Simulated assay, not measured.
Amino acid sequence: MELIVVTSLDALCRQQACEDLAAARPGSIVVLHDLLENGTVVRRTFTGAGEIERGESFLEHGCLSCAVRLDLVPGIERLIQDSPGKGTPGPIIIGLAPATPAHAAITALNEKLADRATVSSVILALAPDALEDHIWDAHTLYESGFTPMVEDERTPGECLIGELAFADTVLVTEPEIVPPDPEGRERGLHLVRQLAPHADLAASAKEDLHDPFGLEQAG
């Protein structure tokens, strides 16, 4: 079974990325994972027909790593066990809870599912016109509203730099709720290329070309 992991700082960017990836890969299953206040974990599963499962649980120690190990991984394992009988042709697209370190999620998935599933791609969903502001944001993730965990002292910039270093693809997402800033978008695209030269920069979920914006040639 193929797994595609989507990481993001922002839930709207994650949502758009997962929807676009599923549209580009018919037969996909999308799993959205969220950690709410007081240790509440919500896991929603979708196919092209709509939502097929919604699970809600409470973790006594409600941190992102526990949410992944104790809820997300067992949920993915059940989907894999059920998929042969249901003829699932596409990958499982996993939308991590905002600010979840992708490397921690991949480690947990590989430890439990390595013999039955392969993570084919780790995709960072990002609005490029917001990247510069996130990098310079001196508040913690909690103070900036990206996580319910008061104890998480990472800044948005620290989180994004880590995800840029780990992801193999950066997928440009621009939620319609906020009109993009053209100048900020251009600076953000160049920043992505400088901070993550190893990663493919994709203009859409259907984009297979490396660096479709031509930033390498532009210097």
Rank of each mutant, 00 (worst) to 15 (best):
3 L>N: 02
6 V>A: 08
8 S>Y: 02
13 C>S: 11
16 Q>D: 14
19 E>G: 15
23 A>V: 14
23 A>W: 09
24 A>Q: 06
27 G>Q: 15
36 L>Q: 15
37 E>G: 15
38 N>V: 02
40 T>Y: 12
42 V>P: 05
44 R>Y: 03
44 R>S: 05
47 T>F: 09
51 E>F: 11
52 I>W: 06
53 E>A: 14
54 R>H: 09
58 F>V: 13
61 H>M: 15
63 C>S: 12
63 C>D: 12
64 L>I: 07
66 C>H: 15
66 C>D: 09
67 A>S: 13
70 L>A: 04
71 D>G: 11
73 V>Y: 04
75 G>N: 05
76 I>R: 00
76 I>D: 00
78 R>D: 10
80 I>G: 06
82 D>V: 08
84 P>A: 08
86 K>T: 11
86 K>Y: 13
87 G>D: 05
94 I>E: 04
94 I>W: 08
96 L>I: 06
100 T>E: 07
102 A>N: 01
102 A>M: 01
103 H>D: 14
107 T>G: 07
107 T>P: 00
110 N>E: 15
115 D>Y: 09
121 S>C: 06
122 V>L: 00
127 A>H: 01
128 P>H: 02
130 A>D: 12
135 I>S: 00
135 I>H: 04
137 D>A: 14
138 A>T: 13
139 H>Y: 02
143 E>C: 00
145 G>E: 05
146 F>H: 14
147 T>Y: 09
147 T>I: 04
148 P>L: 09
149 M>L: 14
149 M>S: 09
150 V>E: 07
150 V>Q: 08
150 V>G: 00
152 D>P: 04
153 E>A: 15
154 R>G: 04
156 P>T: 04
160 L>G: 05
160 L>M: 02
163 E>D: 03
165 A>K: 02
166 F>T: 01
169 T>S: 04
171 L>V: 03
174 E>T: 10
175 P>F: 03
178 V>E: 03
179 P>C: 10
181 D>C: 09
183 E>W: 12
184 G>R: 05
185 R>H: 14
185 R>N: 15
185 R>M: 15
188 G>W: 05
188 G>C: 07
190 H>Q: 12
190 H>S: 03
191 L>C: 06
194 Q>Y: 05
194 Q>T: 11
196 A>H: 02
196 A>S: 11
196 A>L: 06
202 A>K: 00
205 A>Y: 01
208 D>F: 09
209 L>V: 12
209 L>T: 08
209 L>Y: 09
215 L>H: 07
215 L>R: 12
